[in-house]
Write a protein that binds this DNA or RNA. Sequence first.
DNA 1: GCGCTAACGCAAGGGTAGTAGCGATAAGTC
DNA 2: GACTTATCGCTACTACCCTTGCGTTAGCGC
Lengths: 202, 202
Amino acid sequence: MATMEVQAARQPVRRTGGRSARVRTAVIEATLAALLTRGLDDISITEIAQQAGVHPTTIYRRWGGRSNLALDAVLSGTEAEIPPPDTGSLRGDLLAVIRGIFPFLRTPLGELLVRLALRRDLPEYEAARAGYWAQRFRAGAALFERARARGELRADVDPVLALETLVGPMYVRMLMTGEPLDDALLVRCVDLVLDGIAAPPR
Amino acid sequence: MATMEVQAARQPVRRTGGRSARVRTAVIEATLAALLTRGLDDISITEIAQQAGVHPTTIYRRWGGRSNLALDAVLSGTEAEIPPPDTGSLRGDLLAVIRGIFPFLRTPLGELLVRLALRRDLPEYEAARAGYWAQRFRAGAALFERARARGELRADVDPVLALETLVGPMYVRMLMTGEPLDDALLVRCVDLVLDGIAAPPR
DNA sequence: GCGCTAACGCAAGGGTAGTAGCGATAAGTC
DNA sequence: GACTTATCGCTACTACCCTTGCGTTAGCGC
């Protein structure tokens, strides 16, 4: 009796070194350059291809389309890890959090990342985005836990909502109103979230 | 001597009624339908044209491109005026403000408006956007003035930043994190902005 | 009504995005 | 070093976006 050889769906051996790697870095580099000069919607794959010294079909095959290519390029240029702050006070930690995000968002790359996050035609981005926010909010949870232990926090505060409220104005100004945005405003954001706007009871 | 007749650059007599009006409403309607079903980036002008019973060339000539067409359609479907609230208390006014924005943003049309606001390839949109926010913040200013007179407000509160902080989490959840969003959260947003997160001094 | 011309319809055409087939090259394995 | 095949280059092709030029229709002012 012949052996029951189940032909396992053998996945092809990927080739990650040498030419493929060179092609990838060249394309990613050219894409980033194009993104930073032309914007998110006006990049041409044909143009990027000849800029990278590569044939357009290669890009279509490996990335499949503009959105995916832009996503890969921007994520490749972004380091995900941000050390969670521990300054010893709630106010100091919140300042560190918002100051850790703000300068990056001001760079062209940061702005691209935000705009990419707002697209809905990229199911691949959902995972990356979820990971990004999960990581940030894990750091936030620790931050609030310490503050609670120090007695600096109200009892009923939701850390997630608090962080969203903290960074909310930054995104609103960046994306919607276009109002000016600087470090002094970040400090005011922190103090507003800490103390609220209501007059203290007397 | 002949009269010095300066040939003033005579602008053409616009025809706003009759056929032009019919074409416009038909196209706008078809565009809105297409936007709501296909999304902001996947609309086809050819398709919209035949849906509206109009030749594609007409759309290209009158609107010039997809972005402009989408902008006009969405703005046409949106009423700009929102009555400023006056409930008698700061908390009531803030709730009214955020509750006035929230249901609209949940509609497909509201979401389209927000996404349009995030595009940078539409200089025409800048004016509309500025007007929208100016109107909203004028109402906000009156709201805070009354609260200040009632002694409900801290002395150093910036109304603009306060409003941005109020609505910030709503936009963050809608655009970035995708966290759930309901009326109960709006109430918590208001209370957080009012009271802050810091434990009261004792 | 009448004339003028803005606005529309139509046909033709350039340009670019994206796909499919096939041979050539080179990465990984032995 | 030799073999297998993943990956890339090339050509050809389709499809759609958008523009241009010209003839036709129908608002608007008189």
